[in-house]
Amino acid sequence: NLGLIDVSVQLIQLLQKLKTDLESLLTAFRCSLQFLGNIATGNRESQNNIWKLAFPSLFLNCINHQDEKINGYCCMVLFTCLNTEKTKELCEESNLNIALAVLRAYRRCPESEWVFLIVTNHLLKCPELVKAMYAKLSNQERTTLLELLLSEILGGNLAVNDEMATFLASGFQEKCQAVLKLTSTANHEDEEALVVVRLLDVLCEMTSNTAQLECLQSCPGLLEEAVAILRLTHVSGKQTTNVFTAIHSGTGQEEISHPVIGFKSHLIRLIGNLCYKNKTNQDKVYELDGIPLILDNCSIDDNNPFISQWAVYAIHNLTEQNERNQELIAQMEQQGLADNSVLESMGLKVEQQDTKLILKSVRKMPNV
């Protein structure tokens, strides 16, 4: 009511125009922003007044300012003013640059608490905004966004809705073959391929959560694409020696550093999740000839930690209450196409009852 918000905003706008690096003026700039942040805390009327006067240009200019402290204080003000309705305003084409600037500020200064809070408490919780941002981001920026998304899902801080889950699945399906670029040592940091790796990580976590599992199990083409890219990477690793080639040093002490480490393991995990108590998907993997493919990935592989365990998990989900899939594995074992020792390691054995081969469990399914 004293008009201090108006005066502070006018002062900030004046200091912006001066474009000076004089410390005394920068201090005034910072203090003005800090004052706005303080006066907005817990006061909806002040928040609305600041939003009316500062949105969008003042926020955008301050977030992009070369002074790190000005960035931080501006993000404090922005975080304090944001709510669900205001976050949706960022989806508009004319305002989207603010959301993009916040993410880029996080990339420049990941230790900035206010920037992090804006991203995690507001931006990631608006599916429409995530989709709009994703379309405008570079591959490096997409990787950052997905890593933040993954961290929030793992921490139980983000409930992904069906819209977001479907969008991310579509992104994976569209670009997943880019990961094949990583077979070349010259492309080991290909940015598009790194996005695919992170998308797969996110999908694995989402399908491990019952809230998103049903949606992704029925997502058109996702399972087919997962099986297809597993086959392509597996064949690639057999044709030439590359990061998709299964290796086993025997020591377990050699640390391998490559962005695609664990990719095939995660693909099998995703396939297993998508087939969990879902006969339609179990049958689909059968039709795609995916069961022999998974069985061929049961050996220890230093490039894919825990791949044998995830293969056990996937085979369990593929054969649970599915006689046709059980019979296929039993026939493969009889014909020598499936290694009996591999089946035993999975806790499975083949028995003949009359003229029929039966796949039976000989021990309790491990908790993977």
Rank of each mutant, 00 (worst) to 15 (best):
T210R: 15
M133Q: 11
L274V: 05
L158W: 09
S170K: 15
T245S: 12
Q331C: 13
L60G: 06
E23F: 10
Q140T: 02
F306H: 09
S94V: 09
P127L: 02
A28M: 12
K52N: 06
K356G: 00
D190F: 01
Q321H: 03
C31A: 08
L129G: 12
C75K: 15
T27I: 14
A105V: 13
V130P: 09
D67A: 07
K356M: 03
C176I: 04
L222Y: 10
K86L: 15
L103G: 11
R104G: 14
Q10P: 00
V77S: 09
I261L: 13
P220W: 04
I118S: 12
I70E: 13
R231G: 00
F167W: 08
W51G: 03
E147G: 08
N95W: 07
K17T: 15
Q217C: 08
E214N: 15
L96S: 08
E214D: 15
N83G: 06
Y286N: 11
S361L: 12
Q239N: 08
A330W: 02
P110N: 05
Q326A: 02
P366L: 05
T84M: 10
A105H: 13
V195N: 01
I268M: 04
R30T: 07
A135E: 12
V197L: 03
V312C: 14
E93F: 01
L200D: 05
F35Q: 08
P305F: 08
A246V: 03
N71E: 11
L213H: 00
D354E: 12
H188K: 15
I50R: 02
M332T: 02
T210L: 14
L11M: 11
G221S: 06
N157L: 08
S236L: 04
I70W: 11
L200P: 12
E205F: 01
V195P: 00
P110E: 06
L78M: 09
M365T: 05
D283A: 06
A246C: 04
E189I: 07
D190L: 07
D339W: 06
I261W: 03
I98R: 01
L337F: 13
L222N: 04
T80W: 02
T245N: 06
V350N: 13
T251P: 00
I329R: 01
C275F: 11
V260M: 10
V195A: 00
T143G: 10
M346D: 05
E152F: 11
N187Q: 06
V342E: 07
C219D: 13
